[in-house]
């Protein structure tokens, strides 16, 4: 419980997002404590992925603030968010199909590398040095996630579970401070899911990263999260430790009762 008491790394305040007449997020506020694994759950259409897309700058909410360290993320264009140390995966996989697995992961290093058109075109020493560093880091994460066998294959055509791990590798390679995982268990079988839970915990301790997790699978979220935020129809209905949330009558009615 100490983790939950830690100062928040990410503060979401009164975020409201409307698509035409539909209110996808209705004044949602919550904190993600530094060093925690925070789960964001809710039934289908509750607004979880919308929340993610607001945090990463893909959507612009009509009102509210998302404060990360000292930055209001809602004021930043999408490409300025990754350099702050925020990495994400996507619910429906957003890999680069024509690139090799290795190159896909290397794109994850983009936000923490600097060299531009000219230094690369002229192969200046510092560009080469940076490339070697990228290679080293990519190798590291490839070994960590067991992707060595597929490293040089193109992404297109690999099995779904492998693609999920590649996305995770791409997010981890930049050593983010905040890792956003959008339904990492989607499409995985039972054993894979329990392995995934262990993996996420290992990632947290090994990479010293705060994790915000959107997930459908209750067992996984309840098993590994320090804190759980529950959304329902765009509103936050509960917020607390897994035990507190599990006992919350609103949650039982809105979610658990329906899903189980």
């Amino acid at each position: 419980m100490t983790v939950v008491a830690a100062p928040p790394l990410l503060r979401v305040r009164d975020v409201t997002m409307r698509f035409g007449g539909l209110v996808a997020l209705d004044s949602v506020s919550f904190d993600v404590p530094a060093g925690s694994i925070t789960g964001l759950i809710g039934p289908n259409g509750a607004g979880k992925t919308t929340m993610f897309n607001c945090i990463t700058g893909l959507y612009r909410p009509q009102s509210g603030e998302v404060i990360y360290k000292d930055h209001d993320l809602l004021r930043l264009p999408p490409h300025r968010i990754a350099p702050l140390g925020i990495a994400r995966t996507f619910q429906n996989l957003a890999l680069f199909p024509t690139m090799s697995v290795r190159d896909n992961i290397a794109v994850g290093m983009h936000s923490v590398t600097r060299q531009g058109f000219i230094s690369h075109a002229l192969k200046l020493p510092w560009a080469l040095r940076e490339e070697r560093e990228v290679e080293r880091r990519v190798d590291e994460v490839i070994d960590f996630l067991g992707l060595r066998d597929v490293a040089n294959l193109p992404c297109a055509g690999l099995p779904f579970g492998t693609l999920k791990r590649i996305e995770l590798a791409r997010a981890l390679v930049s050593r983010p401070t905040l890792l956003l995982l959008d339904e990492p268990a989607g499409g995985l079988n039972h054993e894979e899911i329990s392995a995934l839970g262990d993996l996420i915990k290992e990632i947290r301790s090994r990479f010293d990263v705060t994790v915000l997790l959107v997930e459908h699978h209750m067992g996984l979220v309840m098993g590994i999260s320090d804190k759980v935020v529950v959304l329902d129809f765009g509103k936050k209905i509960a917020d607390g430790t897994p035990d507190e949330v599990r006992r919350d009558p609103d949650v039982i009615q809105a979610y658990l009762g329906v899903d189980e």
Partner: peptide
């Protein structure tokens, strides 16, 4: 990355 998936590219910075 831009050619293959613009949104993911911008999410990578």
């Amino acid at each position: 990355a831009i050619r293959d998936n613009e949104i993911a590219a911008s999410a990578m910075g």
